[in-house]
Design a protein around this nucleic acid. Structure first.
Length: 887
RNA sequence: GCGGACGUGGUGGAACCGGUAGACACACAGGACUUAAAAUCCUGAGACGGCAACGUCGUGUGGGUUCGAGUCCCACCGUCCGCACCA
């Protein structure tokens, strides 16, 4: 029969309609079934999907479809991270409402996702901007508030002057807002915080159990939490020099062992002692002011000189009260870390050393590096911060650094003189509480009412949700909720007096910190349906971008624990449970971070960025040149970069899907590059994928004519050629399954290519008269082939399945079982080496004995030649692997 | 500065637990089919030498362990990413 080209775009619509009609991708409520929860990070509805989404969702879909075929009850939902700044910016620029902008984007993007043929359960769709969602989030907030896990405090915050809102520490990258890129300013504001620091220890310790998370992400989170073990040490202040009311200075150190190397004290410019001292010292006051003005960006910090100012205050050494040290205000000491005060040991810390050299302060070496002589050892330009033997340290001399730490700790702890302990062991974290107040409209309202008499009062549960007013205005900068004429004016729920609504909304990262839980019962009238969540959670495979390594993933790990402890706990079923057996603690059992989609960049002669669709190419290979279509002038081909609007190196998934089909886009995104690495989008790549689709179709089309009808009994005898094809099919099936399990999609693709080669070469050897055994094997191999491509190219697979004569949907077929006997060969090829160099290979029975292999190897002509008459000293035989003749 | 990852043909990459390096694909070259093109099919190819059989070299560099190293260990070079005045 004449082979027609497979018309992907047309046929894909057909199959998508059928899947939807039969509703086959909805997760079952039957909780006796083995479950698998597959989740890709839900998108922000920015307007249109981009290639990064295609890659992310293609991967998740392969996994979900595969697991479904393997008999799991799969939950594979999709939703929208729908609150956020761009909606408000659009409202300002285009005079639309954030809600209508957002919902219209959702509509568009949902259509695009549907055109990808994803096996999603759309009945569970959620949008975080819907009151149906955020009312539950408000309830969670109130439960956290009740437990003291949400609280208000005044503090210095990161203020983004462009977005006109506060940012969390995690959202400041290199001193700039993560979204706006504006230089962040410091402001003192009263804000709502989540007490993530209450979980520092647990969040850190539990990283060790996340063995299906990338090492990189675990390390990044561990560094972010930043645990250090040290001591709080109290230094008495010299009465004569200290300001009134200050009798001691508490410092934090991780190196109490170096206490005898102390040469000065340093405090942050915002330290209360510094402020007190500055009151009577104008010069000091202006120095502190200067420090505050100094930028906190990476570049500023890098270049900033270590500077200090002697306050005149003297502190007495905790191990020798007659030893007085000067107290400096120093620009490198941070109020936010530890106690905002340090003791400096210049010989053991580079910063302290630089400072000491500058201000001519003593540098006393206290640690002798291994192999150095105490008589000659000196500190030059570099401090020594590693371990060694204690010197110049009185009673510590001769001890190791570790022993000295313990000795000092013991002495300080024992010296509990007076009211307060002088020394105390302390674990310190870099992690700080999560500031969630945002001075924006398009976010989840914080359900609190401020009353002059009663303070912050929770909105009663019956009054939830606190809805955003529809009639806000966006024509002026600042918070539309705050300037709304009526919205914030309410009566106090407790005393009834006129009061004021909280006008801040929650950070949108709160929305995404529990959406995965909501998916398990998206219509429940409580935030978390315990039964549903206990069945479905944890997420078995989470897939998303590395950019969320800290932000979203750390927040989610915290928030899940916090709401669990606030009464929304989930059964752990013995997995990932907390220390006190208090249910599930980790929401994501396995995490996969996929790489970015990149593309060449192009510039016109004038230096403007050009879209790939604005240019055409002349020549190929090394002589390939780009020409700007509009002008006919040559265009410059630039570096390969992440696809972005600013560099215009975008390829629109819609164009690709319409021209090539979703399967083609999916297949290309899955081929070649390992999923965790960046992939370069190329025209050649998409063409290659398109070619393969046609080839696969031709193979199945041809095969369908030659294969035995479905249901034909297996012939008694199968000839060697048919047997070979059978083996290839079952091996490929097994290998593809293994690769998908390991999310090694590029390898699975290669294995499918390889099997396609076997299949088409077997077909080309088969004439019009197909032998009975070959016909039967062709059917089997054809079916397996279609099964293999099913998770990756589901539409084409359905088309092929139908071509093989089936009326059923392939998507409903179970994954076939590979026959174990076909996976191992009777005869295998092993390499033969002489002195470690490969000289030949040997085909021998798989279970051949060692001496049999040895004898066969020694008989090989190439081995005899390589031995050059020498007799073997030793022969290493590893059955099924290798023979190495050592002469 | 600290931490992490990576380095394999012209290109993307494969190689399970230390056992035939370069699977598979892209690009390239030659051939078949065609009036022609496209599409498709076949063939070739790590480098160097050789008509060939074959030989030598070869996984960033230098060393080491081993019968055997892309894989393990040490040092160095390079690229990418994260954090960064954290006491």
């Amino acid at each position: 029969m004449a082979t027609e080209r497979y018309n992907a775009p047309a046929r894909e619509k057909h199959w998508q309609k059928l899947w939807e009609e039969k509703n086959i991708f909805s997760a079952s409520d039957d909780r006796t079934l083995p479950k698998c929860y597959v989740l890709e990070m839900f998108p922000y509805p920015s307007g249109r999907i981009h290639m990064g989404h295609v890659r992310n969702y293609a991967m998740g879909d392969v996994f979900a479809r595969y697991k479904r075929a393997r008999g799991f009850n799969v939950l594979h939902p999709m939703g929208w991270d729908a609150f956020g700044m761009p909606a408000e910016n659009a409202a300002i620029e285009r005079k639309t409402h954030p809600a209508s902008w957002t919902y219209s984007n959702i509509e568009t993007m949902k259509g695009q996702l549907k055109s990808m043929g994803l096996s999603l359960d759309w009945a569970r769709e959620i949008a975080t901007c819907s009151p149906d969602y955020y009312k539950h989030q408000q309830r969670l907030f109130l439960d956290l508030f009740d437990k003291g896990l949400a609280y208000r405090k005044s503090s210095k915050v990161n203020w983004d002057p462009v977005d006109q809102t506060v940012l969390a520490n995690e959202q400041v990258i290199d001193g700039r807002g993560w979204r706006s890129g504006a230089l962040v300013e410091q402001r003192e504001l009263t804000q709502w915080f989540f007490k993530i620091t209450a979980y520092s220890d647990e969040l850190l310790a539990a990283l060790g159990g996340l063995d299906k998370w990338p090492e990189k992400v675990r390390v990044m989170q561990a560094n972010w939490i930043g645990r250090s073990e040290g001591m709080l040490v109290r230094w008495a202040l010299d009465k004569k020099t200290a300001p009134k009311g200050f009798s001691e200075l508490e410092i934090y150190t991780t190196r109490p062992d170096t206490l005898f190397g102390a040469s000065f004290m340093a405090i942050a410019p915002d330290h209360p002692l510094a402020k007190a001292a500055a009151e009577k010292n104008a010069e000091l006051a202006s120095f502190c002011e200067e420090c505050r003005r100094m930028g906190t960006s990476a570049a500023d910090v890098e270049t900033a000189e270590k500077r200090g100012f002697d306050t005149g205050i003297r502190a007495s050494h905790p191990l020798d009260k007659d030893w007085l040290l000067p107290v400096y205000v120093a620009n490198f000491v941070l109020m936010e870390y530890g106690t905002g005060a340090i003791f400096a040991c210049p010989s053991g810390d580079q910063r302290d050393l630089d400072f000491a050299r500058k201000y001519d302060l003593p540098v006393v070496p206290v640690i002798l590096p291994p192999g150095e002589d105490a008589a000659t050892f000196e500190i030059g330009a570099e401090a020594y911060d590693a371990s060694g033997t204690m010197i110049n340290s009185r009673f510590l001399d001769g001890l190791t650094t570790q022993a000295a730490f313990e000795e000092v700790a013991k002495r300080l702890e024992a010296a509990k003189l007076g009211k307060a302990p002088v020394g105390q062991r302390k674990v310190n974290y870099r992690l700080r509480d999560w500031g969630i107040s945002r001075q924006r409209y398009w976010g989840c309202p914080i359900p609190v009412i401020h009353c002059e008499d009663c303070g912050p009062v929770p909105v009663p549960a019956k009054d939830l949700p606190v809805r955003l007013p529809d009639d806000a205005t966006f024509d002026k900068p600042g918070n539309p909720l705050d300037r709304h004429p009526t919205w914030k004016h309410v009566d106090c729920p407790t005393c009834g007096k006129p009061a004021r609504r909280e006008t801040d909304t929650m950070d949108t990262f709160v929305d995404s910190s529990w959406y995965y839980t909501r998916f398990t019962a998206p219509h429940a009238d409580v935030p978390v349906d315990r039964d549903a969540a206990s069945y479905w959670l944890p997420v078995d495979q989470y897939i998303g971008g590395i950019e969320h390594a800290i932000l979203h993933l750390l927040y989610s790990r915290f928030f899940f624990r916090a709401i669990s402890d606030a009464g929304h706990g989930v059964n752990g079923h013995g997995v990932n449970e907390g220390p006190a057996d208090n249910g599930l603690r980790e929401p994501f059992a396995a995490l996969f971070t996929q790489g970015m989609v990149t593309h060449e960049t192009y510039k016109s002669e004038g230096g403007a960025w050009l879209l790939p669709t604005d240019i055409c190419f002349e020549g190929d290979g090394d002589s390939r040149r780009a020409v700007e279509l509009a002008t006919g002038r040559p265009a410059a081909i630039g570096s390969i970069e992440k696809m972005s609007k600013s560099k215009k190196n975008l390829v629109d998934p819609d164009d690709i899907i319409q021209n090539w089909g979703a399967d083609c886009a999916r297949w290309f995104m899955l081929s070649d590059s390992p999923p965790e690495r960046d992939v370069v989008w190329t025209e050649a790549g998409i063409q290659g994928a398109g070619r393969f689709i046609q080839r696969a179709w031709r193979v199945v089309d041809d095969l369908a004519d030659k294969a035995a009808p479905g249901g034909t009994a297996k012939p008694d005898a199968i000839g060697p050629e048919a047997e070979e094809l059978r083996r290839a099919a079952h091996k490929a099936l097994h290998a593809v399954a293994q690769s998908i399990e390991g999310l090694r999609f590029n390898v699975a693709v290669a294995q499918i290519y390889e099997f396609t080669n076997s299949l088409s070469s077997a077909l080309s050897k088969t004439g019009s008269e197909t032998s009975q055994d070959m016909a039967w094997v062709l059917r089997e191999a054809g079916e397996l082939f279609v099964q293999m491509i099913g998770p990756m190219m589901p539409h084409l697979a359905e088309e092929c399945w139908a071509r093989l004569g089936y009326n059923s949907l392939l998507a409903n077929q179970p994954w076939p079982v590979a026959e174990a006997a076909l996976l191992v060969d009777d005869k295998i090829t092993i390499a033969v080496q002489v002195n470690g160099k490969r000289r030949d290979e040997l085909v021998i029975a798989r279970d051949a004995a060692k001496d049999e292999i040895e004898a066969a190897a020694l008989k090989l002509e190439s081995v005899v030649r390589a031995l050059e008459g020498r007799s073997p000293k030793k022969i290493i035989v590893v059955p099924q692997r290798i023979v190495n003749v050592v002469a």
